[in-house]
Amino acid sequence: MSDRKKIQLPLTPEDVKDLKAGDRVLLSGPLYVGRDQAHQRLVDLLEAGKPLPIAIEGETIYFAGPSPAKPGQVIGSCGPTTSYRMDPYSPALIALGLRGMIGKGARGEAVVEAMLEHGAVYFTAVGGAAALIARSVTSMEVVAYEDLGPEALRRLVVEDFPVIVAQDSHGGNQYEDGIKEYARM
């Protein structure tokens, strides 16, 4: 694990610029957690010209919906969910200054264009490594949309959360590079 970059959240524009597809990173600091319905509500507010319940600029959003915490746990299991479902919403949030996204699976063209234009990075966490990831969460609070249950908008503080840069702010794409390297057809 010694070849991992340690990065403190929130991400700076320089952090984003320096990160390249394939980099293995340990993230520490605050981030938001939100998935399908929370994104829908945020973008609905934007379209209606209303204020958001959270400040997006400079932030990182982790696409996840944790399982319920057992007594004594900070958070239940909390691995990433599939990111393409957030593709319709992410460009608007990136335009507002969202700098980092964490999920799993490749992002579409419109998201990549927004990442290039505004400077944002997309990390993948390991899907299904949810009990392991929960260990890196040191605090959790629901900040909005409590009625959505597992889909509520949350604020976490993480320490050494292991992620990999999947798509970077320069157009680098580890999904494409990785397949090119290992495909035998």
């Binding site: 746990q73 239940g76 949810a130 392991l132």
Partner: peptide
């Protein structure tokens, strides 16, 4: 992750 889930009696995946 599988070891942690089995030992701590927590779901291996949040989904």
């Amino acid at each position: 992750n599988a070891e942690i889930a089995a030992k701590e009696r927590v779901p291996m995946c949040q989904d």
